[in-house]
Amino acid sequence: MAVTTINNNVTTSGNDFVYNPNSQLDKDAFMQLFLKQLEMQDPTDPMDTDKMLEQTAYLSTMEMNQNMQTTLDNLANTLQQTSSLNSISAIGKIGDTGERYINVTDNDTSKNFELYFGDDISSGKVLIKDKNGNIIREFPLEAHTKGILNFDWDLTDNNGQRVPSDTYEITAEYTSPDGKSHSTALGAYPIESIRFENGKAYAKIGSNYVPFDAIKEIYEWQG
């Protein structure tokens, strides 16, 4: 019976060579080797039937594993494409990160933040609260068209005193020209666009791009 060895990129059977540049014995290389064994076997001492069945079963297992890997790769590609489509379909809706607080440190002299107003503003106020829910500062809102408004807080409370270094919640309450009451909060903005980098989706909300998976909730603006 011919002797079979595998060494680096070359699989040998007797005096014949089957080149395998990937250094892996795939099903095609295995079939070539198997057929070469049958061709080179000694007629007076044929290959053992059990050994032949064992190698055939091995070939079937290799092919099944390869087919399974192909299926898994296709599934992964499909899921990635579906995720991309889902993120694109979110454009125009509200992306809420759930981040309602800003952090004030001893080195800060002011804090800038943005709020989204989904309806025209007739009147209203921006509320800054401490961790206990106490209102420490109010900004009046003048009439304005809907959209994202930018605010700059000098870190003083309603009495003109500098607030302690801590975290503060930002919300707003306002009335639209039709007399309806509305509210909004820090962290909720329209998703304006989606950008992909290295297969990862980023959403433009407010003036920043954030990872799409950082968005906690996506919904239509209800006011």
Rank of each mutant, 00 (worst) to 15 (best):
T4I: 15
N8G: 06
N8K: 09
N9C: 10
S13T: 14
D16F: 09
Y19N: 13
S23I: 11
Q24C: 03
L25T: 10
D26N: 15
F30M: 12
L33A: 12
K36E: 09
M40F: 07
Q41D: 04
Q41R: 08
Q41C: 06
D42L: 05
D45N: 15
M52L: 14
Y58A: 11
L59P: 01
M62I: 04
M62W: 02
M62F: 05
M64H: 04
N67L: 13
N67R: 12
T70N: 09
T71W: 07
L75P: 02
A76G: 04
A76L: 08
Q80A: 15
Q80H: 11
T82P: 02
S84Y: 09
S87L: 04
S87P: 00
I88C: 03
I91C: 04
I91Q: 11
G92K: 10
K93A: 08
G95W: 00
R100Y: 08
T105N: 11
D106T: 15
K111C: 10
K111Y: 15
N112I: 15
L115E: 01
D120W: 01
I121A: 00
S123W: 01
S123M: 05
K125T: 11
L127Q: 07
D130N: 15
G133K: 05
G133M: 06
G133F: 05
N134T: 14
I136V: 13
F139L: 08
L141H: 00
A143P: 00
K146L: 09
K146M: 10
G147P: 07
G147H: 06
L149A: 07
W153M: 01
D154V: 08
D154A: 09
T156L: 13
T156M: 09
T167K: 13
T167Q: 12
A172N: 01
E173F: 05
E173V: 11
T175W: 05
G179D: 06
G179R: 06
K180H: 11
S181P: 02
H182Q: 04
S183K: 08
T184E: 02
A188N: 07
Y189I: 02
Y189N: 02
I191H: 01
S193E: 12
I194H: 04
F196E: 14
E197P: 01
E197K: 09
G199E: 09
F212S: 13
A214N: 13
I215H: 01
K216T: 10
K216V: 07
Y219L: 05
G223Y: 05
